[in-house]
Design a protein around this nucleic acid. Structure first.
Lengths: 123, 123
DNA sequence: AATACAATTAAACGGTTGCTTAATTATAGG
DNA sequence: CCTATAATTAAGCAACCGTTTAATTGTATT
């Protein structure tokens, strides 16, 4: 393992020695803060799903219209909507033959905006 | 395609008719706003990577320490760091035999916080 | 030089994922 | 009751992804 990054006596330094078992365990405990977080990001990791979510942030749409705008097959879109539904990111209402979807959670818009800001900084 | 969701004459309604080619094209144009965004989310979609990024938000660490804390093989960790490097999310400096990594972008912390807030709301 | 350790890279394998085609359910209209 | 349209579901397939093992590079030590 690595040696201490802090010189002996340099206790003003905020960093811990990762080679010490105590610090290692402390860091492991902190990891619980982000447990399961990647699951949400996994939903957003597909281009089609971010497009669907962004469309729904603009207006309510039925499945066939989403498919039309995205130029995709209906089953493919339905497949993604099912996943978004399972994660409580979208809600739906039936109106005759159509089923209209809309956002169920505004956090998503915030995540998308933040990601946009990331790219906006010349990356 | 779907019929208009707005009754004729109800032009106070903010929603557009998605079945009209003009609206369809307008929506398609808006999609450019989120083009490529999922790529960033894809990086965060892996649990190991979110854990690495969160660890690095706490303190600078070398590869073998990350591997130790996460209880993973060195090549596996290195593999992920390579991807994070390619996306300019982490930076590194060599110090002797070790290579120390740290966050290169604070946006990531914001994204993680926002995702945490999402789950904090009883979902 | 030679050895040891940290890190990276490459190849290969197993699991996951997203799309397609086909079949099924649901609702509206003739 | 039958047909047509919207949507969902299921099965199958190709592509992608993360890990492992093994080999290679780089740096420090003796």
């Amino acid at each position: 393992m690595a040696e201490a990054t802090v010189q002996p006596g340099a206790d003003y330094c905020a960093t811990y020695d990762p080679s010490s078992p105590a610090t290692r365990d402390a860091l492991r405990e902190r990891l619980l803060d982000v447990a399961g977080l990647s699951e949400l990001f996994k939903v957003l990791s597909d281009e089609t799903r971010t497009r669907i979510l962004y469309l729904l942030s603009l207006q309510e749409l039925c499945v066939c219209d989403i498919a039309d705008v995205l130029d995709m097959s209906l089953p493919a879109v339905s497949h993604h909507l099912r996943l978004l539904k399972a994660h409580r990111l979208v809600k739906y209402r039936r109106e005759g033959k159509q089923v209209y979807y809309s956002l169920d959670d505004d956090h998503i818009v915030g995540l998308i905006s933040l990601a946009q800001a990331h790219y906006a900084e010349g990356r």
